[in-house]
Structures are given as structure tokens and as C-alpha cells.
């Protein structure tokens, strides 16, 4: 991964850079699978390697294929990136070890979900209780997002169909 990023920085052919960023996304997805974030990995592969590569190619069509050499050296962005990265690494030092049962996420609310969810929500399935009752508003928002996406797809599909009908009428 580090090698890929270094290559992206060094190269000047923008098309190669777009392809390498796709490869980087695939590598990142593999990495997420290794640390058990399968859903995150899947999103990374679909958005990073799929959609964003295509969007970058669209941008490439508009602005040409080679990079313009900047007039002056830019030190400040590098500094900001290094400082932010250092802060993030520093933040991970406090985190509990991976899969540690003493981690706060397993001590804070999980015992209450396990012990009291039946009495509080009278939903027999624990996962359903968390999703539909404790995180009800969150789930409502997610459902709204998915519903909107579905409506969007339906509208696009119906437009294609309408267009075809119009072409048929024109031909006739």
C-alpha cells in the first residue's frame, strides 16, 4: 500500500494515477477484510475502486491527461498532513487491543442489552431490539436513505423506458 501511494505521488501521467488509485482501493479493501470489517471493505471496493475510478476518468476527459508542474514548492500542505497523521497515530495509542473483552464497547451498554432488552422492549431477538428500539431513529434514517435510493433508481429506469417509447412513436 505504501508503495502504491509513493508511486501515485511520483507519477505525472494522470491516467496511470487513476488506475493506481483503483488498485489502492482494492488493497485497502483487502486490509479491511483482514481486520474483520467486511462491510466497510465492500463499500471501499464498490465506491473506491468502482464509482470513484469512473468519476475520475470523467474528470480526466475534461482536463487532459498530464499533470501541470506547480510553480513553487508547497511545504504547508505537507506539514498539515504530517501533523494530522501524527495526531491520528497518537490517538490510536490509547485504544484497547483488538478483540479485548475488557474494551469499553463491551462493558458500557452491551451487558444492559443482553440482560434487560427483553424486559424493556419486549422484543425476543436481541439484535432486533437494538436495531428497532434502542437505535430506532438511526434505523429510520437508514431506511429513508435506502428508500430514496430505490425511488431514484426507479425514476431513472422509467425514464429510459419512456424515451424508448418516444423513439418508437417518432419512427412510426
Amino acid at each position: 500500500m505504501v508503495l502504491t501511494v509513493l508511486l501515485i505521488i511520483r507519477l505525472h501521467n494522470l491516467f496511470a494515477i487513476v488506475m493506481l488509485s483503483g488498485i489502492f482501493s482494492l488493497l485497502a479493501a483487502t486490509f479491511f477484510v483482514v481486520v474483520d470489517g467486511v462491510d466497510v471493505a465492500f463499500t471501499e471496493a464498490a465506491v473506491g475502486a468502482g464509482i470513484s475510478t469512473v468519476l475520475m476518468l470523467g474528470a480526466l476527459m475534461l482536463c487532459g491527461r498530464t499533470e501541470k508542474i506547480p510553480d513553487r514548492k508547497t511545504v504547508l500542505p505537507l506539514l498539515v498532513a504530517v501533523v494530522t497523521g501524527a495526531a491520528l497515530v497518537y490517538g490510536t495509542l490509547d485504544m484497547p487491543y483488538y478483540g479485548d473483552p475488557e474494551a469499553p464497547i463491551h462493558q458500557h451498554v452491551a451487558p444492559r442489552y443482553i440482560n434487560d432488552s427483553l424486559a424493556e422492549t419486549s422484543v425476543p431477538n436481541m439484535v432486533t431490539a437494538v436495531l428497532a428500539s434502542y437505535r430506532g431513529y438511526d434505523t429510520l434514517g437508514e431506511v429513508a436513505v435506502i428508500f430514496t435510493a430505490g425511488i431514484g433508481v426507479l425514476v431513472l429506469l422509467s425514464r429510459i423506458k419512456l424515451g424508448r417509447r418516444k423513439e418508437d412513436e417518432d419512427a412510426a
Binding site: L7, A16, M19, L20, I23, A29, A49
Partner: peptide, 21 residues
């Protein structure tokens, strides 16, 4: 993907990289 002289070499490299993934 890095050396690929033509565009299609690079596309093919990304594709095969995806298969490797």
C-alpha cells in the same frame, strides 16, 4: 500498471489486480 506502455495494459492490470483481490 506502473510501467504499462499503453492504456489497455493498465486497465488489464487493474482488472487482474481485482481478480487477485
Amino acid at each position: 500498471a506502473l510501467l504499462g506502455p499503453t492504456l489497455f495494459d493498465r486497465v488489464l492490470a487493474v482488472n487482474s489486480f481485482g481478480t487477485k483481490t
